[in-house]
């Protein structure tokens, strides 16, 4: 019962924070500096790890499907398999999991320490709403950067699969053939749906992490607890939302 109340309280405070941040949307043009800084932090600094992971996920997908296709099934469909898997599921989910661990934890840690060391109280006494200068630029940045990161993850994953498909001796498919099945059978909607999912995941990760950070009470130990909670809650929400968003988009 106590946990249920905590969950409902968390949901309520998260929605309140969203409403407050949305009410300051008009101030975004004059916060362009903060927005660009967050785009850099969320997007640019996450890019290398997204590229490395998606390259190897695409490679493993090609390797596994190539190995399975040795015994049954036509190998030229490996391109389609890698393409669909990356665009519809693995691209958005993998980027979201990475962001939860890297960006969600950083946001929770920064805002929690600002709360614990009374910087948030200082903002409030200055009549500067934290939702305006700390939450809104981050939410705007994730909405812009999440599709970019997901498209890059998709492309690099496809490329990794193509390299493995060509140079693995038991697959040996030329890139032309690999990409031909992708072009032939994949639709724009497959990529689009993946981008919609990624937007939802990214937005939720940032919102939840901001809320957990801003509601931290106590000392340094609670900062660590908030970081852990932000990552765990984000991961759970990614997987739960994945099901519902996928179903809604079908």
């Amino acid at each position: 019962m106590k946990q249920l109340i905590q969950i409902l309280e968390g949901l309520g405070s998260t929605l309140q924070l969203l409403m407050r941040a949305a009410s300051y949307a008009g101030t975004l043009p004059r916060q362009i500096g903060r927005f660009v800084e967050q785009c850099y932090t969320i997007g640019y600094t996450t890019l290398p790890i997204v590229a490395i992971l998606s390259f190897f996920i695409g490679s493993v997908l090609a390797l596994q499907s190539g190995h399975a296709a040795e015994n049954f099934g036509p190998k030229q469909f490996i391109g389609l398999l890698v393409g669909l898997s990356m665009a519809a599921e693995l691209g958005p989910v993998m980027v979201a999991v990475l962001l939860a661990g890297r960006v969600g934890s950083a946001i929770a840690a920064e805002l929690a320490s600002m709360k614990v060391y009374q910087e948030i109280d200082a903002l409030e006494t200055m009549n500067i709403p934290p939702a305006r200068i700390l939450v809104l630029p981050r939410l705007a940045a994730i909405l812009v950067m999440m599709p970019v990161l997901t498209i890059i993850a998709d492309l690099v994953g496809w490329f990794g699969g193509a390299i493995v498909a060509k140079y693995t001796h038991f697959i040996s498919i030329e890139p032309e053939s690999y990409f031909a099945t992708m072009r032939q059978y994949m639709e724009f909607r497959d990529v689009w749906n993946g981008l919609v999912k990624a937007e939802v995941f990214g937005f939720v990760i940032v919102l939840v992490s901001c809320n957990i950070g801003l509601n931290t009470r106590g000392g340094p130990r609670e900062i660590g607890a908030s970081v852990t909670r932000a990552v765990v809650v984000s991961l759970i929400l990614i997987l739960v939302l994945d099901y519902f968003v996928t179903k809604a988009l079908m």
């Binding site: 009374q118 910087e119 109280d121 006494t125 200055m126 500067i128």
Partner: peptide, 26 residues
């Protein structure tokens, strides 16, 4: 204006930017 016990200065900003935040935001 409240002067906090530990200062509550914004650690990511210089002293100048700490002071300039209020007039800039308002």
């Amino acid at each position: 204006a409240l002067v906090f016990q530990a200062g509550a200065l914004f650690n990511s900003m210089t002293v100048y930017d700490n002071l300039a935040l209020y007039p800039r935001e308002h």
